[in-house]
């Protein structure tokens, strides 16, 4: 549909004014942003999208291998690193550039960080935040009380924050250690003692190999699984929040507008979506709102805090 010429003129004028305002406000910060990761079309595409989103900044892509052997960027350059390899490189490289590290989850990062708190590094968690997942669970299943959670040695530390997030929602966390995913007894006990399962992105527990027994066993006992992420929802989990490229671009944009000194050490994206599996919901007899509506209600709850 072509907009009328009058509308397009008005839009163009407004856009110019807005851009001037933005440039005036951001002028001081306008600088180089280097995005680095293992080279892949999707990464290049994301760089291009970010560049388009921030025309005032010089956004360019440098493969992580080249960044490692070349001259280190100056402290004024903001670095955006993507993936676990990039995290590992950053941890062993003395560099002053403020760094945002994307597409890492808390469990992976914990292994590499090993208790360190590197300076000038902000970790942008890729795994859905547990309090957001719990709120989604509450929206979908307003009457459940006992939330079953599987954990292993790597993920045990998440239980306490999870319990703290669950308490205000009147949810009780029932946790079972699952040291050996080929022995389903802990899972069976957990399904007996809980009303719904919540999965967190722990690759040792939730992976393509464990998916079948997890999903079939919980479905046979009419228990829904919430999370751990979008691919699992396609496999048969009921629902999960997630952030896609657009959400990350928006969240990143907001972050880059702030001076690096104010960046937190770690954060979750403020923008997100909800993905549900309507067939699973139907088979479990669960009424589902539209995904966009669920995301809107969750976001409204977060903003009102």
């Amino acid at each position: 549909m072509r907009p009328s010429s009058r509308t397009s003129l008005l839009s163009a004028t407004l856009a110019c004014v807005a851009m001037l305002l933005v440039l005036a406000l951001r002028g001081a910060d306008a600088a180089e942003i280097i995005l680095s990761a293992q080279d892949a079309p999707a990464v290049r595409q994301f760089t291009a999208a970010l560049a388009a989103q921030r025309p005032e900044d010089q956004v360019r892509f440098v493969p992580i291998g080249e960044l490692a052997i070349g001259t280190l960027p100056p402290p004024t350059t903001r670095l955006i690193l993507i993936g676990e390899d990039a995290l590992v490189w950053r941890l062993k490289t003395a560099i002053e550039s403020p760094t945002l590290i994307m597409r890492v989850n808390r469990l992976e990062a914990r292994r590499w960080l090993n208790g360190q708190r590197p300076e000038n590094v902000t970790l942008l968690w890729n795994d859905p935040p547990l309090d957001r997942q719990l709120k989604l669970l509450r929206l979908l299943l307003p009457h459940v009380r006992r939330v079953g959670v599987l954990f292993d040695a790597d993920s045990q530390h998440l239980l306490e924050p999870l319990r703290q997030a669950a308490a205000p929602l009147q949810l009780e966390i029932v946790a079972r250690e699952w040291p050996n995913p080929r022995d389903s007894r802990p899972l069976l006990e957990l399904l007996n003692d809980s009303d719904v399962l919540l999965g967190f992105e722990a690759p040792s527990l939730y992976n393509p190999l464990t998916a079948k027994s997890l999903l079939l066993t919980s479905y046979a006992r009419q228990r829904a699984l919430i999370g751990p992420n979008a691919p699992f929802v396609r496999a048969g989990s009921l629902s999960s929040t997630y952030s896609d490229q657009d959400d990350w671009l928006q969240s990143l944009d907001e972050l880059l507008d702030q001076p690096p000194a104010s960046w937190p050490r770690a954060l979750y994206p403020t923008h997100f979506k909800v993905l549900s599996n309507p067939q699973v919901a139907r088979a479990l007899g669960i009424a589902l709102d539209d995904d966009a509506e669920l995301a809107r209600r969750l976001a409204a709850g977060e903003h009102s805090r």
Binding site: Q45, P203, A211, K212, P231, Y242
Partner: peptide, 10 residues
């Protein structure tokens, strides 16, 4: 999608 499509699960 660089972020939403993690490891694919059947």
């Amino acid at each position: 999608d660089l972020f939403a499509d993690g490891e694919s699960v059947p």
